[in-house]
Design a protein around this nucleic acid. Sequence first.
DNA 1: CGCGACGTTGATTTGCCTCAACGATTGTGG
DNA 2: CCACAATCGTTGAGGCAAATCAACGTCGCG
Lengths: 192, 192
Amino acid sequence: MKTDLIVDNVSKHISLTDEETDLFLSLLIEKKLAKRELLHKVGDVCRNSAFVIEGALKGYTIDNAGGEHVLNFAVADWWIADMYSLFSQKPGVLLIEALADSTVLLLSKENQELLYKQNPKFERFFRILVENALVTNQQRLLDNLSLSAEQRYLNFIKKYPFVLNCAPLHSIASYLGITPEFLSKIRRNIAS
Amino acid sequence: MKTDLIVDNVSKHISLTDEETDLFLSLLIEKKLAKRELLHKVGDVCRNSAFVIEGALKGYTIDNAGGEHVLNFAVADWWIADMYSLFSQKPGVLLIEALADSTVLLLSKENQELLYKQNPKFERFFRILVENALVTNQQRLLDNLSLSAEQRYLNFIKKYPFVLNCAPLHSIASYLGITPEFLSKIRRNIAS
DNA sequence: CGCGACGTTGATTTGCCTCAACGATTGTGG
DNA sequence: CCACAATCGTTGAGGCAAATCAACGTCGCG
């Protein structure tokens, strides 16, 4: 199991002894996903956080009219889950799907709670993780309220250039809150 | 100092002994704000979380064109801060302003860190607080991506009816991502 | 090979914005 | 306690950003 990435990820916010690292790693399960495979679907209770080792995923909803709305992407070194469902243990509202063949490490809700009990450091780590996610989300909300579609797209490719390589354009359009057709027109304008 | 409200708020997520409650309360500072007074402004480093005892506040940005964009409201029993600045201790991006004469309890960043060190329960409490804020934010993002302005307004008055009483309509319009004029027209349609 | 997913283009429509103007409140200095 | 200004909510006319609809070429894949 490739564990360097996740150990580094955790070590960015808390420092672990060798024993703590071993405990943490012992609670993870590796899972491979084929392109288009679902990690989570609407109505299921989300039992795991997923840390991406390789590949890419998207979290999204489907509205009454069948339209897809992308809440987030996740690539290597990112965490993803249906957080509403994970935190509340109620049926989830998201689909989480692999955009390419991917490998993730799963940490179950029970093991996460176990970590919290065993060592407050882990509670600290996940607090910081969620804090950062919240700030990123707030900034995205403000961007959606204040910027044009073209400015949002330019922000996006500056902030997440690597996502351009693994996510189809219509998913990026959905993430930005516009139609694929309009994104196509934006890209034409920028190119010229 | 009126402390029942905040003790209840904390007790929703963790259970405290009398000593822990006393410690927590001893770290709070009461602050009164007049209508239009700022709790935080752009460029300042945010040094406190604020818990609202009475009144109402809004957190917002001002764009290059002078337009106001409301990120969030806070009424009694809610927490508010420039979270980007609070977490990173870098200069903030938000204005936080009292919509009416208000009373808040301030918990400084240092005291918050002190609580974390003294007792992991508090780290747990704030983790859960941020988790809930994140989920609410994600839902709002999805609503903005998938619903019409009218549907967002109807959602808003259903979810936060009490905010209608204390926030001016142009701030609510800004929160919803529309102009005051258009909100006015939506309200006319709904009334008929 | 043939089908479905993807990205693009053009024509048309629409949800929401801009601008300008108007009463009704609120609040504030003289 | 009044006069005047500022804020607030609303209305209508006109405009624009982005959606919708329909069509087409390309590619990867079963």
